[in-house]
Nucleic acid binder design. Sequence first.
DNA 1: TTGAAAGCGATACCAC
DNA 2: GTGGTATCGCTTTCAA
Lengths: 333, 333
Amino acid sequence: MVTIHEVARAAGVAPSTVSYVISGKRSISPKTKRLVEESIRRLGYHPHAGARALASSRTSVLALVVPLRTDLNVAVVMQFVASVVKAARDHDHDVLLLTKDEGPAALQRVASSALADALIVMDVESDDPRVPMLLALDRPVVLIGAPDSPSGLPCVDLDFTAAGAVCVGHLADLGHRSIALVGPSPAVYRRGTSYAARFLRGFTDAARARRVKAVPRSCQHSYDAVSSGLDELFARHPDVTGLVVHNEAVLPAVLSDLRHRGRRVPEDVSVVAVCPDSMAENHPVALTTVAIPAEEVGALAVEMTVRSLGGHTSAETRLLAPRLTVRGSTTHV
Amino acid sequence: MVTIHEVARAAGVAPSTVSYVISGKRSISPKTKRLVEESIRRLGYHPHAGARALASSRTSVLALVVPLRTDLNVAVVMQFVASVVKAARDHDHDVLLLTKDEGPAALQRVASSALADALIVMDVESDDPRVPMLLALDRPVVLIGAPDSPSGLPCVDLDFTAAGAVCVGHLADLGHRSIALVGPSPAVYRRGTSYAARFLRGFTDAARARRVKAVPRSCQHSYDAVSSGLDELFARHPDVTGLVVHNEAVLPAVLSDLRHRGRRVPEDVSVVAVCPDSMAENHPVALTTVAIPAEEVGALAVEMTVRSLGGHTSAETRLLAPRLTVRGSTTHV
DNA sequence: TTGAAAGCGATACCAC
DNA sequence: GTGGTATCGCTTTCAA
């Protein structure tokens, strides 16, 4: 292993000087700087992460807690992960991956053992049991999502309440008077996943405000569930002409089943999907969407985290405004 | 921060004793063991990861290199990641997430700075430029995938060559004489992604052996690409009655488009999908599949890695035998 | 069965 | 602008 001492000896300077060249925390003469950097490159020196962490109390690692379940939108989760990792690297940090189902103890462990400097937590629930524990941690935490009481924890997310309203608004503007929501799976609602609850609220409230009928439904991922769900939906509410799908996993199934039952999109049913823009074109009809800005959210979360690490302590909640893109799946009644 | 010294003082023993209680590397009297464990729990002690790494040259962290692109099977990648993380935790390790597009330098960095003890590398290419560098690393490496010349690096993967053959075999057994392959995107083939190449070879070779016609195609993810791809396919090869889809992302589009053009599954076209079993039921027709055993592969990769860390140096390549499950999407001609 | 103390490889303070 | 060195918290050898 190449150590800072070897680099120092090779460059004819003291170890501390090498350290300062690397960190830039004090001014160095151009000559020694050159000398040191040369030696570093020649020897292929990389500072020992553990030693560094021990001496500086900084690991340059962010812990990311993700839900690795299959009843969730895997593709979307992946986008979040990708953008967090990318943003982290842009800020010279690495990412340690934790899964939600290791429970709160894992967060404790990672924080207390100084495996990471800060935590980014996804898949937050409305009344998330992890919040109190996260507050007790002596490390910066940023939530992707928004519990009912963040209690001072900074949050980043799409404004799902507004998103629900935008979907309803768009369809109502087109003259639809009866709008159904195909939401996430029952399990997601059951455990009070924050984004699902917020979207539902936005959806329902906007419908009331616009005086249109709202028919909210949860939906499991299997084709049969989708199919029988739509059976029930149209049987009970034959007047439904607008569909908001907040569940990317079932999008193909919903579209396929609609066609199967002879309902054309958008002539007979208008469909608004809530999903990443990149998924809008992978369907028979280009979908009108409210985008899930995974990229921005991830980048923002990392930025806020890094800022916290810099000592800035702004516990703001940032809910990104929804963006509607009209494509081919919606039309007036 | 709670240190080993404080635990030691609380328990009335020496720090080294605490260390030994934790590691179990020497026998401890039941009494002191109890005492120490008690203090550990009471104080909420977690060993400092950096200090530990520094003293022991062990981080208990595995680096996982994943392709976070969107032209790949995101859902499948996610399954791999999930199973690796789970298996790693089962072996008392954490996972550091690296993306492929940071390039080979990132692997160097992580290895040399002792951020991780070992590397697990996904999305291996047939002639992967990272192989020589991985060999030069002084750390255990396990590949998920199989380059043409592993050069001694241990590999784990589904036997995609055999999988291609199984798909053809099943359809040929049912009497299909002309079989098309809907493969990954052109980009995946272009960069020589190992599994794509191996599957294609298995597919083609088996077709030749069985004297059936093979029509291999790559396929981009957009609906239009799928649709025009099938246009071309059926125009040029109207005799095709068997379809092998090795591209989960386009599965819904393929099925939807088949129905659209009036080809019923399985009456007119038999479809075999290569995808995780969990995706078989999310379609109008339950799909006959050759499973991608992400779970097993991930777990196996971790096991091999941990074994390597234990000093066992078996550079074997383990290709898991494909498993065909017949469901509703295939039938005899 | 236990304790004392020498490192591990950086950082950052104190001198000059 | 540079060097010496105490320090971080743990592991492990040596000694008892």
